[in-house]
Write a protein that binds this DNA or RNA. Structure first.
Lengths: 161, 161
DNA sequence: ATTTAACCTAGCAAATTAGTCAGATATTCA
DNA sequence: TGAATATCTGACTAATTTGCTAGGTTAAAT
């Protein structure tokens, strides 16, 4: 089973998208800036998210990505499945052929665990996350930080000649 | 977060130990034979299990490993923690400094998930597993297979000269 | 003394991760 | 038309982890 930075980045980016998609598409560079993630890496993840029909893209200036479904209809498990391929604690991908064609001693345990995790992550939608107080707070901090950084950038440009 | 073959092997081996520890210590070669695991790899895992005081060892002929606590007092989470170091879905080991010293957007989600998984695995003891019908069935199959293999081995030795 | 087992150390091939880099392609705006 | 913006695409890579092997040492039982 794997739940690594890849899945975490994807969920973080999708949540950022959900939080900022009030007015048109959001570009990956915006997300990369706010969440401090690598742009190129995000591009790779969004290819998979698009193929799994979680987001839709629009190219060109003013373009970017937007959610393909209402926030309440996208759960965390969908996102992780899309980029991480699977959240599966068994060694045999649930096929029960873990010990030379037979079931291994602990197969049932890992199967139960997989269902437990999947159930938990299926029960949480982007809408749930957007509404969480702690997450709202973090998001506001990120927005104001980015604004401050942009202002500084403007000053640098204006005074450099 | 990681839950790989390492943790699975450890739990499988500990369960095998629990199932066969009725009469004295169990050697790692027995476990390796029954569960079809690498002996050297098992040795490495049992170093950690011993350091975490889940098993005790006795050397020499007839030696091997035995459980250091009653089966009801060893839970799956203990075993995985011992070999896998941790089952933690956050990127910051729970320290909340995931984004340049601040909390990242999805920290709370991964924290909840970690607690969910840990709670589930803490709730399952070796005693619970030993008593499960499916596991009893798999164990009986393994025992009879090994016996058959040993008989065959005996015949080979007797007829080879 | 020999055998059996735990114990210890080092190293390694394959896979995975978390990226970078360089460019192609599509869209909008001036 | 052309410049700017942004998504796409693929190849490549450094670092880490995993699962495993090899080879040896130490302790206890026969």
């Amino acid at each position: 089973m794997r739940l690594t930075t890849k899945g975490r980045y994807a969920v973080t980016a999708m949540l950022d998208l959900a939080l900022h998609s009030t007015a048109g598409p959001v570009s990956l560079s915006e997300i990369a800036g706010r969440q401090e993630l690598s742009l190129s890496y995000l591009e790779q993840l969004f290819v998979k998210l698009r193929r799994n029909e979680l987001v839709k893209s629009s190219r060109g200036p003013g373009g970017g990505y937007s959610l393909n479904r209402p926030v309440a209809d996208i759960c965390v498990a969908d996102i992780i499945d899309a980029v991480d391929e699977r959240v599966d604690a068994t060694n045999c991908s649930g096929k029960s052929d873990c010990q030379e064609g037979n079931t291994c001693l602990t197969h049932h345990l890992w199967n139960d665990l997989t269902q437990q995790i999947h159930g938990f992550l299926t029960g949480i939608s982007l809408a749930d996350l957007v509404n969480r107080k702690e997450i709202k707070r973090v998001s506001e901090r990120q927005d104001s930080q980015l604004e401050a950084a942009n202002d500084l950038q403007q000053i640098r440009i204006a005074t450099s000649d």
